[in-house]
Design a protein around this nucleic acid. Structure first.
Lengths: 235, 235
DNA sequence: TGTTGTGAAATTGTTCACAGCC
DNA sequence: GGCTGTGAACAATTTCACAACA
């Protein structure tokens, strides 16, 4: 990282909310998990070196994006060779804050919540589902994926006891806001919401939404445009 | 080689100068489901008129974005008043290609596949899970959410019989590519992939990925960066 | 030779601000 | 007075293209 006299990755402190010192673009952050996933696979296969192009293929992006993204972290590639898989994996794991496991709680043990409880993909990628709660008496006490479902009244106690940092909302939409409020009140500041509704959280709390039906609707939009190219006259 | 861009993309792209006309930006398409969801709620509550600002609040975006997004489809608002909920709902439903239900097939009836089978949110938003398949003998024949699980060998026959347009992959990552190949061979051109791996599809087939662990990793990234409570102000 | 790292250009997306209309 | 619709300004993101260099 010693090219010409210009400052790398921290150029242009623009007006107001400009990209500041050490800020990573959101678009880059959203791709880090793809690189992480690809590198885990390469490492397990015993591959020791990877080029930006190979990594791009495995992540479903293009090589320029890979190089640009990695450059925000200072990157550790070797010109003419590529990246050392083990080193880059360690670097990305570190960038993603995955030096240690994160404990999660799943709120709502219906269909989706139950599936998430047993989902192997979380553990493989550095997350530990430490607890699950529900309000339905017939669900409380059941054991799913090695976790016994507690009553939602115990939410705060469980969060404290298990040092939980991430809350996952898998309730019906009508309860999502109150669940989020309870999570925040108990100290959780990162929430993943699967309920198809907007949830408000205070400043400093990060919430992400996954709406499964929305994904299908986006597919439907494109599907609907195949056979009927245009209905309304344009221009 | 086709990653992002505006909507058509599967037929001739044409003139590369300037911003296209009559093409809907991807960012706009991805927000239509949010407006759709909000309008369904308003309609059910008996609300007849909504302003761009109210709609924006319900969708979790801002008013300028709502107006800009809707303007790509024409002018359906009344200045000084707002939008007619019923009319706008019909318009957006139409834009999303939801004039009729879309039949879907779920491939893989493990934890996630089972949850998707019973997921009420799909039917509420215009999708009908018409079939489900798996390869495990102990899963085939079981009934979940009113659907009897068939063997994966019957994939093509089921797709034809039920006029299925959308395939949902809920298998382990190792099988995702072959499942996608089978779906495409059977005529499916829209795929939603929950397996945490990149899946290649031919030109003209649209695939979207939902990686649950990636969502957690993005939360972890930000969680890991909380050094001091002073956050950069937004806006 | 082959591949990274990165300024600069091109493209895409967001916000502003106000004319036009109810 | 209030709200939409939209061109234009602004911002973010992607892609290009090539020097640097192991």
């Amino acid at each position: 990282m010693h090219e010409k006299g210009t400052v790398p990755a921290m150029t242009g402190e623009g007006t107001g909310t400009g990209r500041g010192h050490g800020e990573i673009p959101d678009a880059t952050v959203s791709r880090l998990p793809l690189y992480h996933r690809a590198l885990i696979g390469l490492h397990q296969s015993g591959v020791t070196t990877v080029s930006s192009e190979q990594l791009a293929d495995m992540a479903g992006v293009n090589a320029a994006k890979v190089r640009k993204d990695l450059s925000y972290f200072g990157s550790y590639g070797t010109r003419g060779v590529g990246y050392d898989v083990e080193q880059l994996l360690a670097e990305i794991r570190n960038d993603l804050g995955l030096q240690h496991e994160w404990n999660c709680i799943i709120v709502g043990a219906g269909n989706l919540g139950s599936a998430l409880l047993s989902f192997a993909g979380f553990r493989d990628r550095g997350f530990h589902v430490a607890a699950a709660v529900d309000v339905a008496p017939d669900r409380v006490g059941r054991n799913l994926g090695g976790i016994t479902i507690s009553h939602q009244d115990d939410l705060a106690a469980l969060i404290t006891r298990h040092d939980i940092a991430i809350g996952v909302i898998a309730t019906p939409p009508a309860s999502a806001q109150e669940v989020a409020d309870a999570l925040v009140a108990a100290g959780v500041r990162s929430i993943l919401n699967f309920a198809p509704t907007v949830v408000e959280v205070p400043e400093g709390v990060l919430i992400r939404h996954v709406d499964l039906a929305s994904e299908l609707e986006i597919l439907a939009f494109h599907e609907g445009r195949r056979t009927h190219p245009l209905q309304a006259p344009t221009g």
